[in-house]
Design a protein around this nucleic acid. Structure first.
Lengths: 210, 210
DNA sequence: TAGATTGTTAATCGATTAACAATC
DNA sequence: TAGATTGTTAATCGATTAACAATC
């Protein structure tokens, strides 16, 4: 039993389960019931059981869930049992910040290269990752078996570059550009629209200011 | 008629409407029907009309919506008619990247100060924004009438610092720390959990790799 | 006026919560 | 065994879509 028509809502909750289980595991908790977890996470126990049962019966009646093994199951569901090879496209502030961030690597998201149009940046290293010419991107993706591209370029270029990435055989795009990409359905895209998220905060502030 | 019990789903769609209307405005489009907009945005026309009518009847039968005025309405709903004063807490890679990003300022999100525990960073400027001591944060928030704190510190410190921010009278937190904050309901919090978002991508990649 | 398109009510769909028999 | 807690079905709730009278 696995992933056919799992709803977006469930998928978005998985990383949060994973995070809480990781913390429980680290603090030495061996087992937890859906009820206890629901109190911790401030959701309903029903939702937890429903969510998990989309992927399999990981619990045991009268016992609950084994923290370690549930953690491993979710880890596997999230695809953390295999290594991902990434490139970052756009060596601006955000691209460089992400390149410098080492925690992703620990989880198997390996950044192999950075690409930028600015030739003054070419040849420079961030950590040990080279900043390369855009012209070499396609070949680099193939040579290094890259599956994820992190898009941190201005929106004006994003759509075009995304299409180029698709042609190069990339499997997923982590899109920080503030635009919707026009890519085939087979491609996985997750958008991080920071400005949208800031506007959401501004909305929620509502009458709270002034 | 305004914002009472608007659902999360609707709120999260507002910035996207705003973006599309901005682009239409910039390309000189004067009016648009919910149908035409629905084709462009790949949603249903019904949803657009329902969403907008939570806030008021901005359209006109037989005509559609005036792009400019709808843009202004949504701008106002999103709170862009007033200035927001921000501080960034945590001058690491991400904090510095956000501080360097000028586009937010253009929309009225003014970054007034940056705070970090690392005293080697104190006194340095990013653009014209000073990096200050954590001890001075509380006073700075009051003196500069700060309403939003951007939290870009490790999760280990985030909960504690968030509580301090609450006491200092902050109204909203844009949280990039990978943890849930424990703050009163009156406070607006929007989380940007980058790692969760990357895991979502990893999940979606599913069988696509290997 | 006739045509177009909204605002809004009603119908449908999907997600969340509750309940409980199965079972460890 | 008795108690606890799951997996799963049924009930409820909410969000999306469809339909259409109102009206520009």
């Amino acid at each position: 039993m696995e992933e056919k028509g799992i709803s977006r809502a469930v998928i978005e909750r998985l990383p949060r389960y994973f995070r809480y289980l990781g913390e429980l595991k680290d603090s030495g908790v061996e087992r937890i019931s859906s009820h206890d977890l629901s109190v911790l996470m401030r959701v309903t126990a029903s939702q937890i059981r429903q969510d998990l049962n989309h992927f399999g019966g990981f619990g045991q009646q009268g016992y609950g869930y084994n923290v370690e093994s549930l953690y491993e199951e979710i880890s596997r569901i999230l695809g953390l049992n295999r290594e991902h090879r990434l490139i970052i496209v756009g060596a601006g502030n955000l691209g460089q910040a992400l390149a410098n961030y080492v925690n992703f690597e620990k989880r198997g998201f390996i950044i192999k290269g950075i690409f930028d149009i600015d030739e003054k940046k070419h040849g420079r290293l961030i950590r040990d990752i080279p900043i390369c010419r855009m012209e070499d991107m396609k070949q680099f993706i193939r040579d290094n078996d890259i599956d994820i591209a992190v898009l941190t370029i201005p929106k004006s270029e994003a759509v075009e570059v995304a299409e180029e990435l698709v042609k190069s055989g990339i499997k997923g795009i982590w899109n920080f550009a503030h635009t919707d990409l026009n890519v085939p359905d087979e491609l996985a895209v997750v958008n991080v629209h920071l400005y949208d998220s800031l506007l959401e905060l501004s909305y929620k502030l509502g009458g709270k200011t002034q």
